[in-house]
Design a protein around this nucleic acid. Structure first.
Lengths: 84, 84
DNA sequence: AGAATTTTACTGCTATAGCAGTAAGATTTT
DNA sequence: AAAATCTTACTGCTATAGCAGTAAAATTCT
């Protein structure tokens, strides 16, 4: 089921709209700033799940939003100084 | 410039590969588990920037990786009980 | 070493993301 | 209320993501 993913894209949608309006931008202005089309901004704010990552990241960058990865074993990843 | 985005997709690539191998899965097994094609897993682990968000999230879900949004004003977003 | 497995890389194909226009609604401003 | 601005929604179009299949490297196992 895609439930979780839908939730996350809805969270993205809310965050983008919130940050955009707080920045005093309309959708077209954000689109130009992020170097994407207005349709992309509109779709993201609609919670479209199939948006491409690079498109989303361009919008995030324009709004100073960062993405972070989290998992139980994530912290183990930094130490890759292993050998046999 | 896409530098930051490339960095982030590389981070994603590393995280996916790390979690997949820690889970004892090969690319095809993860693909089946996540209900995506093997090409998608391969591309993600190559750091492809233009992967679609829903595809990425399916893989993340299979690996128990979560994404989080961060920004200076993010915390203001919860309180939306405003009026004129 | 060879055999088995896994990853990388390519193919042709279908579905769709993203684009610029355009226009209709909705909202805000004067 | 009318005018201006902004958002939503649609169009036709091009580029490409993702698919299964195949095969060649690379890796791992015996």
């Amino acid at each position: 089921m895609a439930g979780n993913n839908i939730d996350f894209t809805k969270e993205i949608a809310r965050a983008v709209k919130f940050h955009r309006t707080k920045s005093g931008l309309n959708q077209k202005q954000l689109a130009d700033l992020a170097d994407v089309g207005k349709t992309a901004v509109f779709d993201i704010e609609k919670g479209k799940e199939s948006v491409r990552l690079n498109t989303l990241l361009k919008v995030f960058k324009a709004l100073n939003i960062k993405m972070k990865l989290e998992s139980p074993l994530m912290h183990l990843m930094e130490n890759e100084n292993e050998k046999s």
